[in-house]
């Protein structure tokens, strides 16, 4: 996969080739590819001259560094107690119906992945979710439907 090679090289040029550059490089791969494949991990190891096990160990530790294929848009719904109390379950149900997938799955067209995550820091405006890096708060069924419609139109 020449593109991955290219991407890893560019990221290493930008962030450096030592251990401290590892996290920014992995984050850069996720931004571009939405997940870090085995090939990408081996490539990072080669570029930074370290063992692939070290790269794997770091990559699998962090919940935002996905090592499984993800959709173009990763939806993370906050599942912490205050969002839960404000109706998070209904939001997840609505999303599941809209996207026709369950939590943890990716749509067939590889556009959306639905996940749950721990506290997003919007407890006073729950329920909250992230779509990639964008935050949406005070969600209800209508709002979620509108947001997903918007994303679907702009794919």
């Amino acid at each position: 996969m020449p593109e991955i090679k290219e991407l890893v090289k560019d990221l290493a040029d930008k962030h450096g080739r030592n251990r401290e550059s590892l996290l920014p490089i992995l984050q850069g791969i996720v931004t571009e590819e939405r997940f870090i494949s085995d090939v990408a991990m081996t490539e990072v190891a080669r570029e930074l001259d370290m063992s692939a096990a070290l790269v794997y160990g770091t990559a699998t530790f962090y919940s935002f560094l996905d090592t499984k294929p993800r959709g173009k848009f990763v939806i993370r719904v906050c599942k912490t107690i205050t969002c839960d109390m404000k109706g998070k379950k209904q939001i997840v149900k609505t999303l599941e119906e809209l996207l026709k997938i369950k939590v943890g799955e990716t749509t067939k067209d590889k556009n959306f992945t639905l996940l749950e995550t721990n506290c997003l820091g919007w407890c006073h405006k729950g329920p909250a979710m992230l779509i990639n890096d964008e935050v949406f708060t005070e969600l209800d069924e209508d709002k979620v439907t509108e947001i997903i419609d918007d994303y679907m139109r702009n794919i």
Binding site: N18, L22, L23, Q27, Y62, S63
Partner: peptide, 26 residues
């Protein structure tokens, strides 16, 4: 500015240093 990647434990100071050094946040 350095970014974390979704690990609560990295708020623990020594885990945070590990993460800044490109390691698992232990």
């Amino acid at each position: 500015i350095l970014m974390g990647s979704g690990a609560y434990i990295c708020g623990e100071e020594s885990a945070l240093f590990e993460s800044m050094e490109g390691k698992r946040g232990e």
